[in-house]
Amino acid sequence: MPRNKLAWRRGVFVILILASLALLTLSFRQTESGPVHAVQEAGASLLSPLQSWGAKVAEPFQDGYQWLKTLWSAHQRAERLEEELQILKGEAIKLEEQGEENLRLRGLLDLRDKGTYPDGTDFKVARVIGKSPTRWQAWVQIDLGSADGIRAGLPVVGATPAAGEVLAGKGLVGKILSVTEHTSQVQLITDSESSVMAKIQGSRAEGIVEGSVSGDLIMDYVDRDVVVESKLVIVTSGYGPVYPADIPIGIVASVGEEDVNIYKEIEVRAFVDFRVLEEVMVLILPEGTTASSTWTTAAPTSTTTAPTSTTAAPTSTTSTPATTVQPGMGR
C-alpha cells in the first residue's frame, strides 16, 4: 500500500472522528434551539412521514405477526395447561387412592381396637402383592415375611370398602399358609381347603365355615334344631388353634335344610370383599400359644358348647384339638 494513501486514509479517519466528537460536543453544549438540534429536528421531521407511512404499511403485517405470536403463545399455554391438568388429575387420583387406603387402614384399626385377641397379640399391616391366578386356590401374597415376625398359621384380618352395614368390609381374611423372608402366602377363608370354627351371634349355633372353589362360604355342621335367621352375624368361635374368638366373618345369607342332612347348611356372605383386598392385618399371636388357649373373653361362655362342634366334625382337621399349629396345615 502506498505510504501517502495510508496517510490519507488515516487522515480521513481522524477527521471523521474529530467531526463526530465535534458534533457530539455541540449536541451536548447547545440548547434545544441550537443549530445542531435544529438540523436533527429537521431530519427527524423529514423521516416522520416515512415513519408514519411505514407504520400504516407495517400495521397489517404487525397484526399478523402479533396474531401468530398470540396463537403460538396460546398453543403453548394450552399445552402447558393440558400438562398441568394431567398432573392435577394424577394428584386427584392419588388423593382418592390415599383416601380409600385411609379408610381401609382405619377399618383395620377398628378391627384391632374392637376385636378380642389373646394377650400379647401384635398387629402388622401388610400390603397385598399377589393373588392366586386360578380359582382352584384362593390365596393372596403379602409383603411381610419371617423377617417381620410372620410365621405360618397366624390369622389375618382385613378391611375392604363396603357400604351399608356396620361391620361391612371388615373381617376375617384367612391365615398365613407359608412364609419366606419377606413375603407370605395367606390362605383365604374362601379357599376350598379352608375351614374355620365359627358361631352365629344371637343364636348360639356353632359350626364350621368352609370355602369352596366357587368362592362361596358355607357354614356347615350347624345343628338342625338351632334356629338361625338370616342377616345374623357369624364370628370365629375361637375353638381351633388358629383363629381367636369373635373375629367377624360375615352374615347369614340363607339357611338351607335337607331331609337327608342332619345339619343345617348356611350360606355365608363374607364381610370382606376378597376381590378388592389391598391391605391386610396379620395378628401376631404370642409364640407357643394357640388362639383357643389364650383368649381373654368370650371363651368361657363357649366352652360348654365346644365339644358339640368338635365332635360334630370329626374328619375336619380344624376341629381336631391340636395344640400346636402345623404350618400350612392347621385349620
Partner: peptide
C-alpha cells in the same frame, strides 16, 4: 450512517457516527 441513525433514533447527534466511524 451514524448521523442518519442519530436522527432516526433521536439521539445525541455525533454519538453513533463516532461509534460507527470507529
Amino acid at each position: 450512517a451514524g448521523i442518519m441513525a442519530d436522527i432516526a433514533f433521536m439521539e445525541t447527534l455525533g454519538l453513533r457516527s463516532f461509534i460507527y466511524v470507529l
